[in-house]
Design a protein around this nucleic acid. Sequence first.
DNA 1: TTGTATGCGTTATCAG
DNA 2: CTGATAACGCATACAA
Lengths: 344, 344
Amino acid sequence: MKFEAVTIKDIAKALGLSTSTVSRALRDSYEISPETKKLVLAYAEKISYRPNPIALSLKEKRSRSIGIIVCEIANSFFSQIINGIESIAYNNDYNVIIAQSHESYDREVINVQYLASRSIDGLLVSVSSETQDLKHLKNLHDRGFPIVFFDRIVDEMDTHKVIVDNFKGAYDATEHLIKSGYQHIANIAGSEYLSITKERINGYQQALADNHMPLNPSYVQYCLHGGMVYEEVENSLNQLLKLKKKPDAILGCADKLTTNCLRYFKKRKIKVPDDIALVGFSNLDLTDLLSPSLTVVRQPAFEMGQIATDLLIQLIESKRPVKDFEKRVLPPQLFIRESSVKQK
Amino acid sequence: MKFEAVTIKDIAKALGLSTSTVSRALRDSYEISPETKKLVLAYAEKISYRPNPIALSLKEKRSRSIGIIVCEIANSFFSQIINGIESIAYNNDYNVIIAQSHESYDREVINVQYLASRSIDGLLVSVSSETQDLKHLKNLHDRGFPIVFFDRIVDEMDTHKVIVDNFKGAYDATEHLIKSGYQHIANIAGSEYLSITKERINGYQQALADNHMPLNPSYVQYCLHGGMVYEEVENSLNQLLKLKKKPDAILGCADKLTTNCLRYFKKRKIKVPDDIALVGFSNLDLTDLLSPSLTVVRQPAFEMGQIATDLLIQLIESKRPVKDFEKRVLPPQLFIRESSVKQK
DNA sequence: TTGTATGCGTTATCAG
DNA sequence: CTGATAACGCATACAA
């Protein structure tokens, strides 16, 4: 038994009408008589006719679906973004197709090519932590394919971008540590290829500079996979803790970096914040349970997804001149928990 | 500037060939001369031709994509399942479209109808916690549309199903508590409409019975939204803690139920396991950080996604007689942490 | 008001 | 070996 769907033809045949009449009746065209309309609509309802979106796509050269490229959906930051994307897409009758790069450049390229081969009308992208070469995206963009970047954006492409003010997030977090009396603040950062990493490091460094504190290059440790792999973070912390001047505080620059720092400390029975303080970027809804001592930088992920999708749909539907590309910068929020610092 | 894709026609025109020749050359048909093939392939590569999957879908009456209906992707159990699904789908050249019900029946119905209107070849479903009426799925199934259920399955429909042995998971967890000396074990359960809830409660009750312990009906509290809403869990725990005979241990029957129990205890400064023990279902990769005292039932989510997808693809491609439907039951695993119980 | 013919991009069938 | 044509389901310009 094969699944055979009802088409406009079936209705036409059953009712002794032509397909065009049926088509027009279904679309409530003004040129169809009320009686015919009623007839067609009733029959369509009866046999539960649904238009074939694929045929529509072929005809209209649009699929009413948008693609999303993220590293992982099992990451609260990104799943919140996806919920934001979904909410807007849904309201505009767009379907959403999610593809994960798992932080692999090769996978990202394959996904982009698959999605973009005209089964989607536009693309929302947050690049993988390995991505340096952008020709898979540039190629599309050059041909006029609508692309909007969010969070992990790229400088080399001129299109809409939505980001969080990473500089400010890192600046505020670092300053919070400085104001609490910490003198040796290290930074566990993500992939050095990512825009967000650079911005966060800049914020961190500026906060130190503004407070007349030295920049110690060995205090910055990069994790290529953004903490997706525990061992990365372990290595970084090992490096930091064997320095002559051990840091007394750490800034975790991503969700998984922060939680893996916690895991490391727990394993080694290092007390937070007594032995070392930790402040980190995190969108987990579990931070209150994770550690009594976790001050976090939280990002407006849902809103970010909404804004990016809104911009993308405008691009797709050409509602605004294609030349005034926007870069929206959203404010992060520092959630301070008093117990996150040792009063010095 | 509109995105115009290159088609087989463009190649034909440019090369002075017919579309059929180009089509055959691209598919490496035996009836095309090597020179022509080389010519076509080279040109196609040069202008980076990609076949239009929508046209293919229309022609072949299949989209090579499968739909997934889950309650939330921001749930580690489900995101692990999705990763499993993706891995198999990917290997079989299937695309995956994820839709979230957010535990709403109405949303589930809309999603199913949207997906099933022939933009997908099959459906993987884990029903929402509100779902009782199944006509949205039955209707499809009756018309021969391939559906496979996973985790939250339904009895009334005869198709492949993949589940975890929920009875055993709950039985083992309960027995662990009994063996550790607890006498008054309560159960924070999910929606009473869900198969998994019933199975887990059965396992819990059987463990009590086998150990000659009384069944106290007021020890079982249902949460319609499976803990997605904190207040649900708060209410349930309030009920339990105002009982004359307060429970000395709790079995949390889902990821979010378990974490929200922890949250409740933390807020009220109730010590686990000294004041009350907690054992729960959880697929979070953060349980080691959440509480030193958390013994968990972990489910093989990734494998579940893989198996369900494998079965679905077999259904879609009719590789097996449609009548021998399988119900695969996977073993859960109890991760015991010694500190999760008070030695009595 | 309704019907006929055409095209969207591709492949299969048939002819040459 | 290659080309013309029909078909997938739908919408629409054009005819009637």
